[in-house]
């Protein structure tokens, strides 16, 4: 089975977030593999181990930072090839443009199954996967928590409110993976080191027009007034204050 896995490099969640002139300062970001995409890699390798075939990884990223170590870890899980597309004006916030580029590369590979994470932890739009499916002209199932292969049919459990939608599909199809779809193995460190012998297929690209909406301004959410101890005469008063804060300020109730 020919499986293509799409990997997005995203800023580490612990990176310092600074906004200057309405723009997020990205030059000191450290990047890592989007955790949702790791599930896709692991599942793809499991299928390959079960019925044979090939797993190709594709990642689209800018040309400045080094992402080799992280991609190598994904390779070491059991992929056969990695294609790295480098674009000078890359932004993680252009799902339409990125989806176009990625689907062009995927088309070359004659894939039976295309997999990626349901969303990136940078922008959480959950858009690129479904868009690629459209550009490839294949159906998609997103938010899958469980994927089984039998013969040439896949059975996917798609997460919906209050339950799961169980869907059967033949290939080709695009699947976006939800958290805990499978347990991602920790590749043997020796394999990671040795995967340096399989060089990546690095390609440079120009920019691609798309219909993405531009962000005009970024700002930090209003300061939480961090760590306020709610005072009160007794439990009743304190609880009242808490509920008020949770409803009005935090808007979580």
């Amino acid at each position: 089975m020919n499986i293509v896995v799409l990997i997005k490099m995203v800023p580490d969640t612990e990176s310092r977030l600074e906004i200057i002139d309405g723009k997020v300062k990205e030059d000191r970001f450290k990047y890592m593999v989007n955790p949702y995409d790791e599930f896709a890699v692991e599942q793809a390798v499991q299928f390959k181990e079960a019925i044979g075939g090939k797993v190709t990884l594709i990642s689209l990223f800018s040309d400045n930072a080094s992402i080799d170590t992280d991609l190598r870890k994904m390779m070491a899980i059991g992929a056969d090839e990695t294609i790295v597309l480098r674009q000078q004006e890359y932004s993680g916030n252009k799902p339409s443009s990125n989806a176009r580029i990625l689907s062009e590369t995927v088309k070359e590979l004659d894939a039976d199954l295309i997999m990626c994470g349901v969303q990136g932890i940078d922008y959480y739009q959950a858009a690129t996967g479904p868009m690629i499916a459209h550009f490839l002209g294949v159906p998609h199932i997103s938010g899958v928590t469980n994927l089984k292969l039998s013969g040439d049919k896949l059975t996917a459990s798609r997460q919906i409110e209050g339950g799961l939608q169980i869907i059967e599909t033949p290939t080709p199809v695009l699947i976006t993976c939800q958290k805990d779809m499978t347990k991602v193995r920790f590749p043997a460190l020796k394999d990671i080191m040795m995967s340096k012998r399989k060089p990546f297929d690095n390609r440079t690209l120009g920019s691609e027009a798309g219909n993405d909406v531009q962000t005009t301004e970024c700002s930090l959410p209003p300061a939480r007034g961090g760590g306020v101890i709610l005072e009160g005469e007794g439990p009743e008063e304190k609880v009242d204050k808490l509920i008020e804060k949770l409803r009005m300020e935090a808007k979580v109730l």
Binding site: P95, M131, V213, Q214, T215, T216, E217, C218
Partner: peptide, 29 residues
């Protein structure tokens, strides 16, 4: 164009949460 999971939407513009809600991104498509 597509804007997902918007926090605010009106004819004035849209606001989305970036970086797991640590940043608010405004746009006027």
């Amino acid at each position: 164009g597509y804007l997902g999971d918007c926090l605010e939407a009106s004819s004035e513009g849209f606001v989305r949460p970036d970086f797991a809600g640590k940043v608010l991104a405004r746009s006027k498509p």
